[in-house]
Design a binder for these strands. Structure first.
Lengths: 165, 165
DNA sequence: CAATGTGTTCAGTCAAGACTGAAATGTGTG
DNA sequence: CACACATTTCAGTCTTGACTGAACACATTG
């Protein structure tokens, strides 16, 4: 194993660490890492199994999970039997909208809590109201942020690309 | 167990579900739930153990974790031997700033990746650059968001408090 | 400085779930 | 339709880590 290969593995394991913190299985993090760092536009099922030293069964489980979460997508190439996988485009942009669903969950939980405290004095409710108001704020900020992202993207992109030379 | 007690438990378990999704131990979610819904300003070690039907050891472990993460704080009341716990004030506000640290981690990982792809054509790098630029955007947006939150909070607060009547 | 009330630590138990590997199923090709 | 190649499924293994409970440590009070 040469030096770059070693760094490659470390990159993939670091990605796995990061995703594990977010509650994903390590293998899912590895697949994401491999698809981020690969030089070709996609990797086959077999290539993933080989590069990550994992069983084909495990890769199958993991890609199913990641497809269900709209993180990777499967591609079939004409004339090839194999399945190929790549990271979904627009993956990062979508983060802004999927956050909204989580926050709506939060809010519904907080509503339940406030219902429970209905007859209690206002002081007891304040903790929940603070959270409710903060969630309101995030919820109303997200669409605006998405709009600003579209505006800002080209400029930031240009700046980063200039740094590569 | 009366009806409200049942709803109380459900609230706490729902909180645990939500926190578990974020990678916390269930017990940590339960403690947070109990501290959110309690009518007194704080709960003692023993009250937590009793209400959550957990061992004192488990509560000790969990409160340590939550204090390390600056989620709860411990209070000692003069004339009382017991320890009391409550949710940190400003907890939600802090979310905006702690996010930044996570994103800096992301960015450093992406930099590693780009270093690995140094000699590769631009197409191979695009996936990582997209992520880098998106992280840049979030990073520059967060302080601005925190500022807007301070401005917006009083108004949203007033609106929510009006709904309680 | 005991005695009593609290909290922490840690070894052991238990459950959840990630991963493997082989059998079953699917899919495209001659 | 049969064959070969690919993927999925699933039962079993193994690891991880949450939780318990009892022994230990600490602190407050008389």
């Amino acid at each position: 194993m040469n030096l770059d290969n070693k760094r490659l593995r470390r990159f993939i394991e670091n990605t796995a660490d990061l995703m594990e913190e977010q509650g994903f299985p390590r293998m899912a993090g590895r697949v994401i890492g491999a698809l981020m760092i690969c030089t070709s536009p996609h990797l086959s099922h077999e290539e993933l199994a080989e590069q990550l030293q994992a069983s084909k069964g495990s890769i199958s489980m993991t890609t199913q999970l990641l497809m269900r979460l709209s993180i990777v997508e499967r591609i079939s190439l004409p004339g090839h039997r194999r399945h190929y996988y790549r990271l979904r485009e627009q993956l990062w942009n979508d983060l802004l909208s999927t956050r909204s669903e989580h926050i709506l969950q939060h809010l519904s939980l907080v509503d339940d809590g406030l219902a429970l405290l209905k007859t209690e004095p206002i002081e007891a409710k304040m903790r929940l109201i603070e959270l409710q108001v903060f969630s309101d704020f995030i919820l109303e900020s997200l669409p605006e942020m998405a709009k600003r992202w579209e505006q800002r993207r080209p400029e930031l992109m240009k700046k980063r690309l200039a740094q590569l030379s």
